[in-house]
Design a binder for these strands. Structure first.
Lengths: 102, 102
DNA sequence: ACTATATATGAACATATGTTCATATATAGA
DNA sequence: TCTATATATGAACATATGTTCATATATAGT
């Protein structure tokens, strides 16, 4: 095939695609999102469940928040986080199943 | 939910999942895989199409090869690379569509 | 107002990652 | 055997990334 016979992705599309995969490319974030796929959780609850420090969890939630992959509802001092992108959760589960059955 | 009411992923599953997403978390590799999803390509062809050096392409193919996401057939001096994991290609296309329609 | 609690955030640090450059390897052709 | 071609690979480098530590912010209870 020659150059103009290929379909090329727009640079913007490539960057945005990489951004999504980068968000999922870390064990801590995978565990956080998998947990949130089962239940809305406070920051401390996530930290306890996953054996992470509060700070580490908060930094990762900040990243996921910026990508709009999670959102939160505040109740007093407590922030309850929820996933915010069904499609990304679906893709996460697909890959988990993909690697689990091999 | 309490600890034992959650489903937890095995550490191995988390690691393998992260490995797949890491492979897809780079613009160069996204472009390479997207190109290979359309056509079997030699290393030089990939480099020319994507405006990358031969060395950079080769390093990335080496990484994708180790993860068994691509394979190659050799013909003399030329290595023809093909994708080797339909499921991963499907997931790549899903995310591309996901980010394209927003 | 004071204290405790929950979370966010910035700086610093170590590690991982992607590219480049130089070079090695291997095959084909003369 | 000499040369050209195609690819792989190691070292070096700059940048990105994830955690920790210290601290800031904000709310609730007394």
């Amino acid at each position: 095939m020659k150059r103009n016979e290929h379909h090329f992705l727009k640079p913007e599309t490539v960057e945005n695609t990489a951004r999504i995969f980068k968000a999922l490319a870390d064990p801590s974030r995978i565990k956080i999102l998998y947990l949130l796929s089962q239940e809305t959780c406070s920051v401390n609850h996530i930290a306890e469940m996953l054996g992470m420090t509060q700070s580490a969890v908060s930094h990762q939630l900040s990243l996921l928040r910026n990508l709009k992959l999670v959102k939160y509802n505040r109740d007093g001092n407590t922030y309850y986080y929820t996933y915010n992108d069904d499609h990304v959760i679906t893709i996460l589960n697909q890959v988990i199943e993909h690697v689990a059955c091999e």
